[in-house]
Write a protein that binds this DNA or RNA. Sequence first.
DNA 1: AATTCGTTCAACCGCCACGCG
DNA 2: GCGCGTGGCGGTTGAACGAAT
Length: 314
Amino acid sequence: MGRAPCCDKANVKKGPWSPEEDAKLKAYIEQYGTGGNWIALPQKIGLKRCGKSCRLRWLNYLRPNLKHGGFSEEEDHIICSLYISIGSRWSIIAAQLPGRTDNDIKNYWNTRLKKKLLGKQRKDHQQRARRGRGGPKQEAKSDESGNLGVAGEGGSRSTYWPEPPMPVYSTGQPDHRVNDTDASTNRLLMMHGNASHQSPFIPHSSLPLPQMYDNSTTLMNPLVNATSFKEAMQVPHRFTAELDEMMLHCNQVKLEGLDCFYGAGGVVDEHQGTTTPASMNWSHVSPLIYPNVLTSYQGMQQCLFEEPVHLGMQ
DNA sequence: AATTCGTTCAACCGCCACGCG
DNA sequence: GCGCGTGGCGGTTGAACGAAT
């Protein structure tokens, strides 16, 4: 015997809500509140809806002060930053964005942001593969600015995933000498390896940090495999599929885009062949994750607004 | 103008956590 | 401690819509 259904499915209406239903639900909740019992609520109002459905409708659509669509660039980056840190914990992410619902953010991520990010990884990989074969052929569908065009996206409506700034090292000049894959990966590892700045959303592990966090080995061994990288990051399980995608070409392709959140720049040790991030402070990663820097958005803003040309902002 | 294809998003489903008796 | 009811959450689905052909 399975679990008893939360409502009588046979007598429950499904599908889109009518304006009348919306009005009933809204009026009732505004006057009396939910009464702490969603299951009983539809019967009280005379709605042939499941209690869960009412709850969802209220939370995602009828609740006051909700924003719909039109995600700002800043919101994009908050979402991405948090997703990178905590994975698909949409309710937590939504809590950082007033007026946004977890469903909204989830949809937005799945339909747009993820494609931007993953599409970029794939495109970069393809371009490199082409270059590797010696063919300077242009991507058929690349846009004029050189930004990523996501298949199927109109382009005018959505913004592109920002092109991360070229790492600038101690010389003050972009450094092309260093394998950018290694530098980028190392920066990520360094950031996450800083235990004192671990994200509070990610449970602390009782295990000792993997050996890869030992600078002497990590930085000397930039080609870290994706599995140990995920372990080291203590990534939530649900996030691993996404990371697998992102890490597809980890050994060949720089984690562009992610750089944006982890801060570009660092100091190159030519003798060791290593790159030390200019800043290893998590507060430069996501101010939302570190409330003490909530107001400043330092790292993100550096990335977002200092080089608008790179970012493809309109 | 008709058809196909791709994208978006509201809504549903099922699982899990929590509180209460 | 256990079972049940409910709330909450994340994943998935499918209708609607727009763009492309």
